[in-house]
Write a protein that binds this DNA or RNA. Structure first.
Lengths: 112, 112
DNA sequence: CAAGAAATATCGTTTTACGATATTATAGTA
DNA sequence: TACTATAATATCGTAAAACGATATTTCTTG
Protein backbone atom coordinates (compact mmCIF):
# COMPACT_ATOMS: atom_id res chain seq x y z
CA UNK A 1 0.00 0.00 0.00
CA UNK A 2 1.44 3.33 -1.05
CA UNK A 3 1.98 5.68 1.84
CA UNK A 4 2.48 8.80 -0.19
CA UNK A 5 1.57 9.95 -3.64
CA UNK A 6 4.81 10.86 -5.48
CA UNK A 7 3.92 12.37 -8.79
CA UNK A 8 7.28 13.62 -9.92
CA UNK A 9 10.67 12.01 -10.24
CA UNK A 10 13.96 13.63 -9.39
CA UNK A 11 16.84 12.86 -11.70
CA UNK A 12 18.36 10.29 -9.33
CA UNK A 13 14.99 8.59 -8.90
CA UNK A 14 14.55 8.52 -12.65
CA UNK A 15 17.79 6.66 -13.15
CA UNK A 16 17.01 4.24 -10.35
CA UNK A 17 13.78 3.30 -12.07
CA UNK A 18 15.56 3.10 -15.41
CA UNK A 19 17.98 0.61 -13.90
CA UNK A 20 15.20 -1.52 -12.43
CA UNK A 21 13.07 -1.37 -15.54
CA UNK A 22 14.98 -4.24 -17.09
CA UNK A 23 16.17 -6.26 -14.14
CA UNK A 24 16.03 -6.65 -10.41
CA UNK A 25 19.02 -5.20 -8.59
CA UNK A 26 20.28 -4.33 -5.14
CA UNK A 27 21.25 -0.78 -4.24
CA UNK A 28 24.94 -1.09 -4.86
CA UNK A 29 24.36 -2.65 -8.27
CA UNK A 30 21.96 0.13 -9.19
CA UNK A 31 24.79 2.59 -8.58
CA UNK A 32 27.10 0.59 -10.83
CA UNK A 33 24.50 0.21 -13.54
CA UNK A 34 23.68 3.92 -13.61
CA UNK A 35 27.36 4.77 -13.68
CA UNK A 36 27.88 2.55 -16.69
CA UNK A 37 24.75 3.68 -18.49
CA UNK A 38 25.64 7.38 -18.10
CA UNK A 39 29.36 6.93 -18.41
CA UNK A 40 29.89 8.41 -15.00
CA UNK A 41 27.78 11.51 -15.55
CA UNK A 42 25.23 10.42 -12.98
CA UNK A 43 26.91 9.25 -9.78
CA UNK A 44 24.53 8.19 -7.03
CA UNK A 45 26.09 8.62 -3.63
CA UNK A 46 24.96 6.39 -0.77
CA UNK A 47 23.12 9.25 0.92
CA UNK A 48 21.06 9.89 -2.17
CA UNK A 49 20.43 6.27 -3.03
CA UNK A 50 19.35 5.01 0.36
CA UNK A 51 17.15 8.02 0.89
CA UNK A 52 15.47 7.27 -2.39
CA UNK A 53 14.96 3.52 -2.10
CA UNK A 54 12.63 3.56 0.92
CA UNK A 55 10.75 6.48 -0.57
CA UNK A 56 10.15 4.68 -3.84
CA UNK A 57 9.18 1.57 -1.91
CA UNK A 58 6.76 3.34 0.40
CA UNK A 59 5.09 5.00 -2.51
CA UNK A 60 4.61 1.71 -4.29
CA UNK A 61 7.06 2.16 -7.15
CA UNK A 62 9.33 -0.66 -6.03
CA UNK A 63 9.21 -3.58 -3.71
CA UNK A 64 11.80 -5.78 -2.12
CA UNK A 65 12.00 -9.09 -3.81
CA UNK A 66 14.66 -10.76 -1.74
CA UNK A 67 17.08 -10.22 1.08
CA UNK A 68 20.34 -12.13 1.31
CA UNK A 69 22.06 -11.03 4.43
CA UNK A 70 22.29 -7.32 4.13
CA UNK A 71 21.76 -7.25 0.38
CA UNK A 72 18.23 -6.21 -0.56
CA UNK A 73 17.09 -6.72 -4.12
CA UNK A 74 14.38 -4.54 -5.60
CA UNK A 75 11.85 -4.97 -8.35
CA UNK A 76 9.93 -2.24 -10.10
CA UNK A 77 6.13 -2.35 -9.87
CA UNK A 78 3.56 -1.57 -12.54
CA UNK A 79 3.00 1.74 -10.84
CA UNK A 80 6.71 2.34 -10.97
CA UNK A 81 6.78 1.66 -14.68
CA UNK A 82 3.90 4.02 -15.20
CA UNK A 83 5.60 6.81 -13.29
CA UNK A 84 8.81 6.21 -15.19
CA UNK A 85 6.92 6.44 -18.47
CA UNK A 86 5.23 9.62 -17.32
CA UNK A 87 8.60 11.12 -16.56
CA UNK A 88 9.88 10.08 -19.98
CA UNK A 89 6.98 11.92 -21.53
CA UNK A 90 7.69 14.99 -19.43
CA UNK A 91 11.31 14.96 -20.49
CA UNK A 92 10.38 14.62 -24.13
CA UNK A 93 8.11 17.62 -23.82
CA UNK A 94 10.85 19.61 -22.16
CA UNK A 95 13.25 18.80 -24.98
CA UNK A 96 10.53 19.60 -27.49
CA UNK A 97 10.03 23.02 -25.86
CA UNK A 98 13.74 23.58 -25.98
CA UNK A 99 14.08 22.60 -29.62
CA UNK A 100 11.05 24.52 -30.74
CA UNK A 101 12.57 27.57 -29.11
CA UNK A 102 15.87 26.86 -30.83
CA UNK A 103 14.29 26.67 -34.26
CA UNK A 104 12.07 29.67 -33.83
CA UNK A 105 11.83 32.06 -30.96
CA UNK A 106 8.40 32.50 -29.39
CA UNK A 107 7.97 36.16 -28.53
CA UNK A 108 6.30 37.24 -25.33
CA UNK A 109 2.67 38.05 -25.52
CA UNK A 110 0.30 38.90 -22.74
CA UNK A 111 -1.99 36.01 -21.76
CA UNK A 112 -2.36 32.85 -23.78
CA UNK B 1 30.83 39.57 -10.65
CA UNK B 2 29.46 36.12 -9.83
CA UNK B 3 29.13 35.44 -6.15
CA UNK B 4 28.55 31.73 -6.42
CA UNK B 5 29.33 29.04 -8.92
CA UNK B 6 26.02 27.43 -10.01
CA UNK B 7 26.77 24.53 -12.28
CA UNK B 8 23.37 22.97 -12.59
CA UNK B 9 19.95 24.27 -13.45
CA UNK B 10 16.74 23.24 -11.81
CA UNK B 11 13.73 22.90 -14.07
CA UNK B 12 12.28 26.28 -13.06
CA UNK B 13 15.64 27.97 -13.62
CA UNK B 14 15.91 26.31 -16.99
CA UNK B 15 12.62 27.76 -18.14
CA UNK B 16 13.49 31.19 -16.78
CA UNK B 17 16.63 31.23 -18.90
CA UNK B 18 14.69 29.90 -21.87
CA UNK B 19 12.32 32.81 -21.57
CA UNK B 20 15.11 35.36 -21.36
CA UNK B 21 17.10 33.78 -24.15
CA UNK B 22 15.09 35.63 -26.76
CA UNK B 23 13.99 38.79 -24.97
CA UNK B 24 14.29 40.85 -21.84
CA UNK B 25 11.42 40.39 -19.43
CA UNK B 26 10.33 41.19 -15.91
CA UNK B 27 9.45 38.45 -13.43
CA UNK B 28 5.73 38.46 -13.96
CA UNK B 29 6.14 38.31 -17.72
CA UNK B 30 8.54 35.40 -17.39
CA UNK B 31 5.77 33.51 -15.60
CA UNK B 32 3.33 34.28 -18.40
CA UNK B 33 5.80 33.37 -21.12
CA UNK B 34 6.68 30.03 -19.52
CA UNK B 35 3.02 29.27 -19.02
CA UNK B 36 2.34 29.88 -22.68
CA UNK B 37 5.39 28.02 -23.90
CA UNK B 38 4.58 24.92 -21.84
CA UNK B 39 0.82 25.19 -22.14
CA UNK B 40 0.49 25.46 -18.41
CA UNK B 41 2.61 22.43 -17.59
CA UNK B 42 5.25 24.55 -15.90
CA UNK B 43 3.73 27.07 -13.52
CA UNK B 44 6.20 29.23 -11.68
CA UNK B 45 4.80 30.40 -8.36
CA UNK B 46 6.02 33.67 -6.88
CA UNK B 47 7.96 31.91 -4.18
CA UNK B 48 9.91 29.90 -6.72
CA UNK B 49 10.43 32.72 -9.17
CA UNK B 50 11.64 35.37 -6.79
CA UNK B 51 13.93 32.95 -5.04
CA UNK B 52 15.45 32.11 -8.38
CA UNK B 53 15.92 35.56 -9.87
CA UNK B 54 18.38 36.89 -7.28
CA UNK B 55 20.24 33.61 -7.36
CA UNK B 56 20.66 33.70 -11.12
CA UNK B 57 21.65 37.35 -10.89
CA UNK B 58 24.22 36.84 -8.14
CA UNK B 59 25.77 34.00 -10.04
CA UNK B 60 26.13 36.11 -13.17
CA UNK B 61 23.54 34.42 -15.38
CA UNK B 62 21.28 37.45 -15.55
CA UNK B 63 21.47 41.11 -14.84
CA UNK B 64 18.91 43.80 -14.29
CA UNK B 65 18.58 45.96 -17.29
CA UNK B 66 15.98 48.43 -16.07
CA UNK B 67 13.69 49.24 -13.20
CA UNK B 68 10.43 51.05 -13.72
CA UNK B 69 8.84 51.51 -10.36
CA UNK B 70 8.66 48.07 -8.92
CA UNK B 71 9.04 46.31 -12.24
CA UNK B 72 12.54 44.93 -12.80
CA UNK B 73 13.52 43.77 -16.23
CA UNK B 74 16.21 41.12 -16.69
CA UNK B 75 18.60 40.25 -19.47
CA UNK B 76 20.48 37.01 -19.86
CA UNK B 77 24.29 37.18 -19.91
CA UNK B 78 26.74 35.26 -22.05
CA UNK B 79 27.44 33.09 -19.07
CA UNK B 80 23.73 32.51 -18.70
CA UNK B 81 23.47 31.42 -22.31
CA UNK B 82 26.39 29.08 -21.83
CA UNK B 83 24.81 27.47 -18.78
CA UNK B 84 21.51 27.16 -20.59
CA UNK B 85 23.24 25.44 -23.48
CA UNK B 86 25.03 23.12 -21.09
CA UNK B 87 21.71 22.15 -19.57
CA UNK B 88 20.27 21.53 -23.02
CA UNK B 89 23.13 19.16 -23.70
CA UNK B 90 22.57 17.40 -20.39
CA UNK B 91 18.88 16.98 -21.18
CA UNK B 92 19.63 15.59 -24.60
CA UNK B 93 21.96 13.05 -23.06
CA UNK B 94 19.32 12.07 -20.55
CA UNK B 95 16.78 11.54 -23.30
CA UNK B 96 19.39 9.63 -25.30
CA UNK B 97 19.99 7.34 -22.30
CA UNK B 98 16.28 6.84 -21.98
CA UNK B 99 15.76 6.04 -25.65
CA UNK B 100 18.77 3.77 -25.89
CA UNK B 101 17.33 1.83 -22.98
CA UNK B 102 13.96 1.72 -24.67
CA UNK B 103 15.39 0.30 -27.87
CA UNK B 104 17.65 -2.19 -26.24
CA UNK B 105 18.03 -3.03 -22.61
CA UNK B 106 21.52 -2.75 -21.17
CA UNK B 107 22.02 -5.62 -18.75
CA UNK B 108 23.85 -5.15 -15.49
CA UNK B 109 27.49 -6.04 -15.46
CA UNK B 110 29.98 -5.52 -12.72
CA UNK B 111 32.29 -2.54 -13.30
CA UNK B 112 32.55 -0.68 -16.58
C1' DC C 1 -7.16 60.98 -3.54
C1' DA C 2 -9.01 56.71 -2.48
C1' DA C 3 -9.39 51.71 -4.21
C1' DG C 4 -7.83 48.23 -6.65
C1' DA C 5 -4.52 45.88 -9.31
C1' DA C 6 0.10 44.60 -10.62
C1' DA C 7 4.71 43.33 -9.46
C1' DT C 8 7.86 42.03 -6.31
C1' DA C 9 9.42 40.56 -1.75
C1' DT C 10 9.44 37.78 2.46
C1' DC C 11 8.35 33.81 5.47
C1' DG C 12 7.92 29.23 6.83
C1' DT C 13 7.43 24.51 5.73
C1' DT C 14 8.59 20.54 3.37
C1' DT C 15 11.42 18.02 0.39
C1' DT C 16 15.72 16.77 -1.66
C1' DA C 17 20.56 15.88 -2.41
C1' DC C 18 24.56 14.30 -0.74
C1' DG C 19 28.99 13.53 1.80
C1' DA C 20 30.77 11.54 5.89
C1' DT C 21 30.44 8.25 8.89
C1' DA C 22 28.59 4.17 11.19
C1' DT C 23 26.72 -0.38 11.20
C1' DT C 24 25.97 -5.12 9.79
C1' DA C 25 26.90 -9.21 7.29
C1' DT C 26 29.74 -12.12 4.35
C1' DA C 27 33.98 -14.18 2.68
C1' DG C 28 38.45 -15.36 2.96
C1' DT C 29 42.45 -16.84 5.30
C1' DA C 30 45.76 -18.10 8.54
C1' DT D 1 37.56 -20.84 14.76
C1' DA D 2 38.85 -16.15 15.27
C1' DC D 3 40.45 -12.18 12.61
C1' DT D 4 40.43 -9.10 8.87
C1' DA D 5 38.87 -7.11 4.93
C1' DT D 6 35.23 -5.92 2.14
C1' DA D 7 30.64 -5.25 0.51
C1' DA D 8 26.16 -3.42 1.31
C1' DT D 9 23.19 -0.79 3.68
C1' DA D 10 21.83 2.64 7.13
C1' DT D 11 22.03 7.05 9.63
C1' DC D 12 23.18 11.87 10.42
C1' DG D 13 23.70 16.50 9.47
C1' DT D 14 23.87 20.27 6.41
C1' DA D 15 22.72 22.88 2.62
C1' DA D 16 19.89 23.95 -1.12
C1' DA D 17 15.41 24.11 -3.51
C1' DA D 18 10.45 24.40 -4.26
C1' DC D 19 6.47 26.58 -3.26
C1' DG D 20 2.17 28.51 -1.18
C1' DA D 21 0.54 32.15 1.65
C1' DT D 22 1.00 36.48 2.82
C1' DA D 23 2.89 41.12 2.90
C1' DT D 24 4.67 45.24 0.74
C1' DT D 25 5.29 48.70 -2.70
C1' DT D 26 4.08 51.15 -6.80
C1' DC D 27 1.09 52.25 -10.60
C1' DT D 28 -3.75 53.03 -12.47
C1' DT D 29 -8.01 54.42 -12.71
C1' DG D 30 -12.32 56.10 -11.34
Amino acid sequence: MPKKALETLSEPMFYVLMALKGQNLCGADIVTWVNNRTQGRVALGPGTLYTILPKLTESGMLHEVSTEGRRRTYEITEQGRALYEAECARLRRQVADMEAEEREHTPFRKEA
